[in-house]
Amino acid sequence: MEIELEGIVVVVGNYGSGKTEVAINLAVERKKAGFDVRVADLDLVNPYFRTREARSLLAGLDIDLVLPPEDMLHADLPLLSPLVAGMIRKPSQVTIIDVGGNDAGATVLSALAEAFGGKQYHMLQVINPLRPNTDTIAGCLNIRGQIEAAARMSINGLIGNANLIDETTPADIYRGVEFVQRLSKESALALRFVTVADELLPEIDMERMACPVLTIYRQLVPPWKKARVPQHQFNGGK
């Protein structure tokens, strides 16, 4: 099953759910599927491991990344570039907005209400059931409510991102798929795709995945590890 996503994609979720890793990899996948892609790093609350860590990868693939000014990249300040509102007003074929965690991180979206005015968007909640607070359906719905209230926008889809980083097993993946499918049923939110790390992919029985799969080539790694090199097949232009 292929991922089908175009237009504005707002990636939200609780702290550490994997939003940024998903946003970067989705951007690469969409680019290689032939779309023009822009990404905005809207994480104003997290000090480390942000989209900006992948800027050379994205630049190399000609994916435009909107960041705060270079000299402010490590500032402990919530900087919102006016370019973000601009890219929402005039979106590319795929415009990915990587938002910070929880309601605190999503609050910034309410400041962009005017730019979003009347526009269609996908607002997708990233779920890792192996994280505290989103290990139950009630927990996920609770986070959803808090994010929607802070953002003054509605979540309309789900991304399953079950993982324990290097220690993820195929069983974790299958259980994660079942979990987000149940959440999708109870919340009436469409499950857009689930993720699997490229190193684990050969061990996964794709027949058991009843939804599209985004391969994650991990980019946000600690200094003693190397980021993975994305190997998506290029589909040609669309």
């Binding site: 702290y15 550490g16 890792n128 192996l130 994280r131 505290p132 290990d135 993982n163 324990l164 980083i165 220690e167």
Partner: peptide, 14 residues
């Protein structure tokens, strides 16, 4: 079982 946590969260929980 194992959960995925930030160091800061794990210190709080611990």
């Amino acid at each position: 079982g194992k959960v995925l946590m930030k160091g800061n969260e794990a210190i709080g929980e611990a």
